[in-house]
């Protein structure tokens, strides 16, 4: 007897379920659609603000590094300063100056360059490539 009661109530519940779900589901769906329609721009922007990091453009990185070198007192001949300039061969910097430049770049983009990578940076181009490869450089 208990079993039949259980089965009956279960069957009733199954039959009733779609009937009561329908009126609940519809307003939810409608409000969901409405909210989507009314402020779509606001929704999109909020998402973009948090997630989308534009990253640094190559030109900007290069410009900032060049400015930094222009203001570096050891660089006397700024005519040779370009995107391909080698710190030693073109700009006449020695290894100590190169360390200073790389440290200044580190400070400029607020990152920390490990010694091994820092040792490998000898030209503007290498520095730009390194910065572009760093996701947290800014």
């Amino acid at each position: 007897m208990f079993r039949t009661a259980l089965l009956r109530s279960a069957r009733q519940a199954i039959c009733a379920a779609p009937r009561c779900q329908a009126p609940i589901a519809r307003p939810v769906a409608r409000s969901f659609l409405q909210s989507k329609q009314t402020p779509p721009a606001a929704c999109f922007q909020a998402v973009r603000c948090y997630s989308a990091h534009a990253g640094l453009a190559k030109q900007e990185v290069e410009g900032r590094i060049m400015d930094l070198l222009k203001n570096f007192d050891k660089v006397t001949d700024t005519t040779k300063l370009n995107g391909e300039a080698h710190f030693h061969n073109d700009l006449g910097l020695d290894s100590l100056d190169t360390v200073e430049v790389v440290m200044a770049i580190e400070e400029e983009f607020s990152i920390e360059i490990p010694d091994k990578e820092a040792d490998a940076i000898h030209s503007v181009k290498q520095a730009v490539d390194y910065i572009l490869a760093q996701p947290d450089a800014h």
């Binding site: 710190f87 290894s95 360390v99 440290m103 010694d115 040792d119």
Partner: peptide, 24 residues
């Protein structure tokens, strides 16, 4: 730039540490 010896790299490493310390 010529390849640096281990000792030369040690010197540069110390210089780097000094510059980092200066920032503080």
């Amino acid at each position: 730039m010529a390849k640096l010896s281990g000792l030369q790299r040690d010197v540069l490493k110390l210089y780097r540490q000094c510059i980092r310390a200066v920032r503080l």
